[in-house]
């Protein structure tokens, strides 16, 4: 509910505060209506009135607005940037919500009820009741091939998705395999083509029939969409070039995990390289379990 607006006064305890979750209640209502529609039509891009947020477009304004619209007093928030909890963007967004909503925050995937993310889905399997919020730079998977928004909307409406395979065809013609490695297009609920946001295609299988609710927000493009729990999500491919996630020949240099998504890190000035888990929470848990 709306907390009453208190005018500034000399009393320090009575200082002016932001509304719970930063956004005003009318904006949150607008967002929730759009989100309900998005959940009702999985994968469909719902337009919404994107607000000015206290960070620039491209830094996760879409994700922040969705988080602000769904967050409640009981929620426990986790924020990931490139899989890590300790990067600038993740730390700032987590602190932002701790301040404007006063909610508990965590870095442990299992403890979180709401996870805002950029680039990754956690390695720890998600559970029922958890909500993932994705920051999306370009919600339209067909945009690189079709510049017109009028036309791409028609393509979605008539379910004319041959164009997306043109891109995959080009990949194979040029590289011998489907070289698209992130933002790999998916078909949601056998109906709408959607961008899974720039997660690596390694994470695409985690979208399929996930027990968690997936919400996607693109602030600059003013679009949001959703994948409800247990929805069928298929990564596009050719019959003779099936979908394949990335594989690594080595295990994580820190925790020894062999089934997680690895980042290549330059370790010193001599150019020594190592591969470590991109999911810092997963890596820490693996190391603690080993001790």
């Amino acid at each position: 509910m709306t907390e009453p607006f208190s005018p500034p006064s000399a009393n320090l305890d009575d200082r002016w505060r932001y509304n719970f979750g930063f956004l005003d209640e009318n904006t949150k209502r607008m967002l929730r209506r759009a989100l309900l529609k998005a959940v009702a039509v999985p994968g469909y891009q719902v337009p919404f009135g994107s607000r000015e947020m206290p960070l620039p477009y491209g830094w996760g304004t879409g994700g922040i607005q969705l988080t602000a619209a769904v967050i409640g007093h009981e929620d426990v928030l986790k924020v990931i940037d490139q899989g890590a909890d300790d990067t600038t963007n993740a730390v700032n967004i987590r602190r932002f919500f701790a301040r404007v909503a006063g909610v508990a925050t965590t870095t442990v995937t299992r403890d979180a009820t709401l996870i805002q993310t950029r680039h990754r889905i956690p390695e720890t399997p998600l559970a029922e009741g958890q909500i993932m919020v994705f920051q999306v730079p370009e919600p339209e998977p067909l945009r690189t091939l079709e510049a017109s928004e009028v036309e791409t909307r028609k393509l979605h409406a008539h379910q004319e998705y041959g164009l997306m395979h043109v891109k995959l065809y080009e990949d194979i013609a040029r590289y011998g395999h489907i070289a698209t490695s992130y933002d790999y297009p998916v078909m949601v609920n056998r109906r709408y083509l959607a961008s899974p946001s720039p997660i690596p295609k390694f994470d695409n299988p985690k979208l399929h029939r996930s027990p968690a609710l997936m919400l996607f927000g693109a602030g600059r493009e003013k679009r949001l969409y959703a994948i409800p729990p247990y929805t069928e999500v298929e990564s596009l491919a050719f019959e003779d070039h099936p979908f394949e996630a990335q594989h690594w020949s080595q295990a994580c240099a820190l925790c020894g995990s062999s089934d997680s998504y690895l980042d290549e890190i330059i370790a010193d000035d001599a150019g020594v390289r190592q591969f470590v888990c991109s999911d810092t929470d997963h890596c820490r848990q693996q190391r603690e379990a080993a001790q």
Binding site: G162, Y169, E170
Partner: peptide
């Protein structure tokens, strides 16, 4: 034409639009 994709993709686009999903046959 689609000027930013290859000739092969230009020719096979209509086949893909009609549902052909076999790269070898398209090519």
């Amino acid at each position: 034409l689609r000027m930013n994709v290859s000739a092969g993709a230009n020719v096979s686009e209509r086949l893909m639009a009609l549902g052909e999903r076999h790269y070898g046959r398209l090519r």
